[in-house]
């Protein structure tokens, strides 16, 4: 690895030292072996504050290689502050190629979205996770939540969904919607919209999740069953829009609502900028 050292920066390849990367990789192997299980790891200080994706960055840093092509998105967009900063960071500390194309990327770090373009075998997605524990809002004690996972006691999660229906008439949880991974571990998919939940199921790509502040990582290996929780009479559904994307005309992508002036005029556009671009180009 030493040949990749960038002496002018005085940093190791991908910022982290090799021992830290080894620790992370070991934890990742365990996470892949036990899909959905949260593995503790020794989170390092990163040149970003907690909450800005330090968990995702550490995961990416531990697995990125020189041949990788990196894509970083934030809320689906490649050109937002968080995405731009993280992409630039890795370009500087690894010199790997970066891209905004989902199809061209071998490694995708994401905050809050899964790209619309279907992932393919061999790709790895890294998710930034603020709260890895799906049960946390209901059970404050880590000791207790770990027991609940150990004994697969997940009735509590349905308490939350029950409350949603009781209060709003439907399951109002619209992002970070809890899933059962491999019919064993209840997991948080990170704050992706529930629109993206079906993409987790039997995904051909490896999905890795890192929470820097909470010092936990977990994984959904390729072709793993991922089930969104629901009630028999209130099945899981995803968001649908009456509008099409104002830029590309797509009817089946996840749309963001954008206020365009002070009078409250609004437009709906794809949250996935790469996908929107492709759609526009294919029409042009």
């Amino acid at each position: 690895m030493t040949e990749t050292c960038h002496s002018q920066w005085q940093y190791n390849f991908a910022f982290l030292d090799e021992n830290t990367k080894r620790m992370l990789r070991r934890a990742l192997l365990k996470a892949v072996a036990i899909p959905g299980y949260q593995v503790p790891f020794g989170s390092r200080e990163m040149p970003l504050p907690y909450g800005w994706g330090t968990g995702g960055i550490q995961l990416t840093a531990s697995i990125i290689g020189q041949d990788d092509v990196l894509k970083v998105i934030d809320q689906g967009a490649d050109d937002t502050t968080n995405a731009v900063n993280i992409r630039r960071f890795f370009a500087r500390v690894t010199s790997v190629a970066t891209t905004s194309s989902t199809a061209a990327a071998s490694l995708i770090q994401s905050r809050h979205r899964i790209p619309e373009t279907p992932l393919r075998p061999g790709q790895i997605m890294v998710f930034q996770v603020p709260e890895p524990e799906a049960l946390r809002t209901l059970e404050a004690s880590e000791v207790e939540t770990r027991k609940l996972h150990a004994h697969q006691e997940y009735g509590l999660m349905h308490v939350k969904l029950y409350e949603d229906i009781a209060r709003f008439g439907h399951i109002a949880t619209s992002y970070d919607y809890p899933v059962m991974v491999n019919q064993r571990y209840l997991s948080s998919p990170s704050p992706i919209p529930k629109f993206d939940n079906p993409k987790l199921h039997m995904s051909p790509a490896l999905l890795l999740f890192g929470a820097g502040r909470e010092k936990r990582l977990y994984a959904i290996p390729p072709h793993t069953r991922v089930e969104s929780l629901a009630f028999e009479d209130h099945p899981f559904t995803v968001q649908r829009w009456e509008q099409a994307c104002a830029l590309c005309g797509s009817h089946d992508s996840y749309l963001d609502e954008i206020i365009t002036d002070d009078a409250g005029a609004r437009m709906f556009v794809c949250s996935d900028t790469d996908y929107c671009q492709q759609q526009q180009e294919s029409k042009a």
Partner: peptide, 14 residues
């Protein structure tokens, strides 16, 4: 959480 959720929790756990 609501009274209904309190009563239902054990049933959901089962």
């Amino acid at each position: 959480v609501s009274a209904g959720a309190n009563v239902s929790e054990r049933l959901m756990a089962l």
